[in-house]
Amino acid sequence: MTPSTVQEVFDGMPGAFRAHKAEGVQMVFQFHITGDESGDWSVSIADGQCAVNPGTHPDPTTTLTLSDKNWLKLVAGKLNPAMALMTGKLKIGGDMMAAQRLGSLFKLG
């Protein structure tokens, strides 16, 4: 099932987490989603565990900003992350290499 709302994506992230790919990983993804379903969520990875929380984290490793529609397309595999970044549909702040690990840490879409 492909999530149809931004909240469904974040609710499903703990179940989509690939703990075996996160050994020794300590990072926080901060998502700033704009549009009709706007909001902020932090996704913390530590000790092979994943925690998703609404709101902002005081010290994220990387921050991803994109619209609700583009986030849903990205998760569904209908928007290439590199293309989204190059065309300004996705903005990344902080550690760019950490942002690139998102796809390997979660099985989304």
Rank of each mutant, 00 (worst) to 15 (best):
M1Y: 10
M1R: 05
T2R: 05
T2H: 03
S4F: 06
S4P: 01
S4I: 12
S4H: 12
S4T: 15
T5D: 08
T5I: 10
V6P: 05
Q7M: 07
Q7A: 15
Q7T: 14
Q7H: 13
Q7G: 04
E8M: 00
V9G: 06
D11M: 10
D11E: 15
G12K: 08
P14E: 09
A16N: 08
R18G: 05
A19V: 09
A19I: 06
A19S: 15
H20N: 12
K21Q: 14
A22G: 06
A22I: 05
A22T: 06
G24P: 07
G24V: 08
V28L: 03
V28Q: 04
V28S: 02
V28M: 04
F29I: 01
Q30D: 02
F31G: 01
F31A: 02
H32I: 13
H32N: 14
I33L: 01
I33Q: 00
T34C: 04
E37T: 03
E37K: 00
S38Y: 03
G39M: 04
D40V: 10
D40F: 12
D40H: 14
S42F: 07
S42C: 14
V43S: 02
S44K: 13
S44I: 09
I45S: 02
A46N: 10
A46R: 14
Q49T: 14
Q49K: 15
C50K: 03
N53A: 15
P54S: 13
P54L: 11
G55D: 06
T56Y: 01
T56I: 05
T56A: 14
P60V: 04
P60T: 07
P60Q: 12
T61H: 02
T61A: 04
T62W: 05
T63P: 04
T65V: 14
L66G: 01
S67C: 10
K69G: 01
K69A: 11
L72V: 10
L72Y: 09
L72H: 09
K73Y: 08
L74P: 07
G77P: 15
G77H: 13
L79A: 10
P81C: 09
M83K: 14
A84W: 10
A84Y: 11
A84M: 08
M86S: 14
T87P: 03
T87A: 00
T87I: 03
T87N: 05
G88E: 05
G88D: 08
K89M: 03
L90Y: 12
I92N: 02
G93Q: 14
G93V: 06
G93M: 04
D95M: 04
D95T: 06
M96N: 09
M96L: 15
M97F: 12
M97C: 02
Q100C: 02
Q100I: 01
S104Y: 04
S104W: 03
S104V: 03
L105M: 09
L105S: 08
L105A: 07
F106C: 02
F106P: 01
K107Q: 14
L108R: 11
L108H: 10
L108V: 15
G109F: 15
